[in-house]
Design a protein around this nucleic acid. Structure first.
Length: 202
DNA sequence: CATAGGATCGCCT
DNA sequence: GGCGATCCTATGT
């Protein structure tokens, strides 16, 4: 696994979070926890355009202890606890102080499958047993306490977990990608600013 | 300090 | 399709 495939800072620094959500499909999300490497091909994402997105934790530019990480430089991990049970993993994008993020909602398990089966207590019979944002983090051993990890440094805040994303040139045909606006949110004439979900079905 | 609620999941009917 | 789990976070007094 060559470091040249790690997504560079420049990938995350761009302005269009919806574009990045689309481009993250087919990229490989990896973790190394206590020397164990697990990974999966990103198959579902959702863009959160912080300031203008009612569904975003940083809507309206709100800053709290939890959401402060969303204002970090692109390429940082924003991870938080949902419903007291699930860690949800997001990729922060854009420049510092602009709180855009992409939620990783599904992966196709790739490396370390038996470890991920152990972590989730599920078998890989479906090929997508690690889909759903809570399951993604669970399978990869990601915990909300790792929020703030730099995805480009391969060195975590805690030192116990590395998280990074690689481009291995996996092609994702547009014909197999469905893009849907989030349900239940309507801004007249502001469709381009809606949160956006991308699902890759092979 | 007290309280309500959440970018979900899996089990139940 | 409904609902409980489970605990942190944000907000209000």
């Amino acid at each position: 696994m060559s470091t040249k495939h790690i997504l560079p800072r420049s990938f995350y620094l761009r302005d269009d979070v919806v574009l990045m959500a689309r481009e993250l499909l087919g990229k490989v999300l990896l973790t190394r926890k206590k020397g164990l490497i697990t990974s999966g091909i990103i198959s579902e994402t959702e863009a959160y355009k912080g300031i203008v997105d009612r569904a975003s934790h940083s809507f309206g530019g709100r800053r709290t202890d939890r959401t402060e990480v969303m204002y970090a430089i692109g390429g940082t991990a924003y991870i938080y606890l949902c419903y007291g049970v699930h860690s949800l993993f997001n990729v922060v994008t854009n420049r510092k102080d602009i709180p855009d993020a992409v939620l990783i909602r599904g992966i196709i398990p790739l490396e370390g499958i038996s470890i991920m089966e152990q972590r989730t207590g599920k078998k890989n019979s479906s090929g997508r047993f690690a889909s759903g944002p809570g399951n993604v983090a669970k399978a990869l051993g990601i915990h909300y306490s790792e929020s703030g990890t730099d995805l480009t440094a391969r060195r975590s805040v805690t030192g116990s977990l590395d998280i990074w994303i690689e481009d291995r040139g996996i092609p994702v045909d547009s014909d197999h990608v469905s893009a849907t606006p989030m349900i239940g949110i309507h801004y007249a004439g502001e469709d381009a600013l809606l949160p956006w979900r991308f699902l890759w079905k092979e």
